[in-house]
Design a protein around this nucleic acid. Structure first.
Lengths: 221, 221
DNA sequence: GTCTATATAGGGATAGAC
DNA sequence: GTCTATCCCTATATAGAC
């Protein structure tokens, strides 16, 4: 669940209380980092919400930046797992495409804070000058699209630009409606958004101008 | 150029130095607000870059938040002008669509900082709880798409979702490549991005499956 | 492992001379 | 209109008792 914790974790684990507290801190921090950004996040607020004193945070994390990176870790790992699960399945390219999109929308819907952090990260909102690593996941997806195009299943269109665009589109869409178009969607509208995104991308890649009919069950995340 | 300045501006204008300084402050602030966000922006840095003392900023702006809003103003006004210019032209819907997209991409390309601020705004990165006003401009564009759909020129697709998606896609695209895919585009690649975006949206609205051939010169921003 | 108390620094904002 | 100097608050981080 938390692959980014130090190796010594298992051996030095003290009480179950410690583990729980650490994870609650991360959860609360994720929320705040998404809503307020790194610079806008106040440690004393996190402590307050967790129900501990501010000083106690420093027992679990060496610094604010340390806590930030702990939060980042989880999201990346889980996303990569979801992507690989789809790509390594035995579905058709069109099915995989659909599954990737739905899985991504699901992720955004279930982890809005994580999505906001991604957006903020792309804006350079990171501790100091710790450059956000060039995304490996991006290449994974772009490669899949590229392969499909070579095979003639997808229409030509810059794969990297498409992938980036979709990420931005969905992320902005979710986060912005709260502010720019309040009431447009609520928690139950995820399926609607999913359909919208799938429809858009399929039109862009001209999927199913003949193949759309035979679409069985897609891989789920 | 700066429609948000107080009315008394013309009569109280003292020296040309004052005007120049105020505008330079705004320009520098826009840069910083884009790069570091509201909370990450440091007034002393702005002052330093402008070449004045921090205290002098307060001669022009009552507070940091005040400065922030001054920066916001310009962008909104200019964008609205650009949109109206296109929509009120005598072009075909397909041409207007293309012009809107190109004009938007141009805006993002020429004002990257402004775009970042928009993204940050959608994330709620604003002074305190000054809610970002529900975008009027959004309705303008969505209405245009909707009209085109009723007229049968554009394929059915939620107009508001499309508009939001495009905004997010382009914005994220520009700002993120710097971080996530460095070297993917440079300043001269704007045309390439423009073509990409236009192509995507046209496929989504199924423009030009027959009309794409007769496309004269589009309205420029 | 959690607390209280405090160190240290930095940032927004003001006072008042020039 | 710009400066120097400073106030005041808040935020991160540390010290050390329990």
């Amino acid at each position: 669940m938390s692959p980014f914790q130090p190796f010594g974790r298992l051996s030095t684990m003290a009480s179950s209380a410690e583990r729980g507290t650490r994870e609650r801190i991360i959860a609360v921090a994720e929320e705040s980092l998404g809503d307020r950004g790194y610079h806008g996040t106040r440690l004393h607020v996190i402590a307050e919400r967790v129900g501990i004193q501010k000083a106690s945070l420093f027992h679990y994390f060496a610094s604010k930046a340390d806590l930030y990176h702990a939060v980042l870790g989880e999201g990346v790992v889980e996303s990569e797992q979801a992507i690989r699960r789809v790509l390594e399945s035995k579905a058709s390219p069109a099915e995989k495409l659909r599954a990737l999109l739905e899985s991504y929308v699901d992720m955004v819907a279930t982890h809005p804070a994580r999505t906001k952090i991604l957006l903020r990260q792309s804006l350079g909102d990171v501790p100091n000058e710790s450059t956000a690593e060039p995304e490996r996941l991006l290449g994974l997806v772009a490669g899949f699209v590229s392969d499909g195009q070579k095979a003639g299943v997808f229409a030509p269109l810059d794969p990297l630009a498409l992938a980036l665009g979709v990420i931005g589109m969905v992320a902005f869409f979710f986060t912005s409606t709260t502010v720019l178009a309040p009431g447009w969607h609520d928690a139950t509208d995820t399926e609607r958004i999913k359909r919208h995104v799938v429809e858009m991308v399929e039109r862009c890649l001209k999927v199913g101008d003949r193949a759309k009919a035979d679409r069985p069950c897609a891989v789920r995340a």
